[in-house]
């Protein structure tokens, strides 16, 4: 060992003397983070795995500019060459909202004035959830090539999906704004009450994406199951029908996690307010999701590269 090391020090690379100096030699860049130490050991206990999972999150945070660039480039690549770009989403959401709004307000004999703002908001939120779930399910598997050629924090892939969908959500919100303007609805200060609710959505979205990505990478049967669960959830949750239609059965609604999470956003914006019970339910479901997600991530993070 020592012999080899000495040998190496004397003539580091034999080709050195014969190589002509590179034309672009001075433009090269030293990689940053020179002091970094990477250590991967087998047979870690829970604390050791948790440390690596935390390091994964910290590194994704450090690379947040990359996350932002990736999310924007995803949108750009998807709509490259298209005239309306991401506003196609806005347009299709608008068509959907008005078509369904007029149809269902007739079917359910509801006042368009209260129904359309409700439906618009619900559908835009549902689109966000739906595309987070769809993207989350293939979150790691579609990035197989990158995962196998670069060491990147796994939470970065999830953060990118969340941010990308948030950008799409930002485009879709325009539909809600227009609907609210048409019907002269102005939530006023209660708009602020929707902020913590959306923050909770953001945290949940990250946890959900990470969890689905990991589970779907390991078990390839999960994505179709998730898709059908989402379809059922869409109809059994008060998304296109108003919760009031449940009449005296409405007390059971908080048992539906989708209802609690939708209502904490919809309530303040539609001027109905939110009960403490619903917030408690939403927080409880989110806490459960976070605990499951974190424990799973700590456990499987090191195996993900083998699963994709």
């Amino acid at each position: 060992m020592t012999v080899i090391a000495q040998h190496a020090a004397e003539e580091a690379v034999p080709v050195a003397s014969t190589a002509p100096p590179s034309a672009t030699g001075d433009a090269v860049l030293a990689a940053s983070g020179a002091e970094q130490v990477l250590c991967f050991a087998a047979g870690l206990d829970y604390a050791g795995r948790r440390r690596l999972a935390l390091a994964d999150l910290a590194e994704a945070w450090r690379l947040r500019r990359l996350v932002r660039a990736l999310a924007w480039l995803d949108i750009k690549a998807r709509y490259r060459g298209s005239v309306l770009g991401p506003f196609w989403l806005t347009l299709s959401t608008a068509v959907m909202v008005f078509a369904l709004g007029i149809l269902y307000s007739t079917l359910f004999r509801m006042d368009l004035h209260t129904y359309l703002p409700f439906l618009g908001l619900s559908l835009v939120l549902w689109n966000l959830l739906q595309s987070l779930v769809t993207d989350g399910c293939i979150g790691f598997t579609v990035e197989e090539a990158t995962i196998r050629s670069l060491r990147m924090p796994f939470s970065l892939y999830a953060a990118r999906i969340v941010l990308r969908n948030l950008i799409v959500f930002g485009h879709n919100i325009a539909v809600v704004v227009v609907v609210f303007a048409i019907f002269g609805i102005w939530p006023g200060v209660s708009l602020l009450a929707a902020v913590p609710a959306l923050a909770l959505w953001l945290v949940d979205a990250f946890a959900l994406t990470l969890t689905l990505g990991a589970i779907c990478a390991r078990f390839r049967d999960i994505p179709p199951i998730v898709a059908s669960v989402m379809q059922i959830a869409f109809f059994v949750s008060p998304i296109i029908w108003k919760p009031e239609l449940m009449r005296d059965q409405a007390g059971w609604l908080p048992l539906n996690p989708f209802y609690a999470l939708f209502e904490i956003v919809r309530g303040p914006l539609l001027g109905n307010g939110v009960s403490a019970l619903l917030w408690a339910a939403a927080l409880a479901y989110s806490a459960l999701l976070l605990v499951i997600s974190w424990r799973l991530f700590v456990r499987v993070r090191g195996r993900l590269a083998f699963w994709v």
């Binding site: 020179a34 990477l38 991967f40 087998a42």
Partner: peptide, 23 residues
């Protein structure tokens, strides 16, 4: 650091560049 070992350990000090495939 792409595959984590099931036995033993790997320790790398310093900045690292990995050139595995042309893409």
């Amino acid at each position: 650091g792409i595959y984590e070992p099931v036995g033993g350990r790997v320790v790398i000090e310093g900045s690292m560049n990995v050139l595995l495939d042309p893409n």
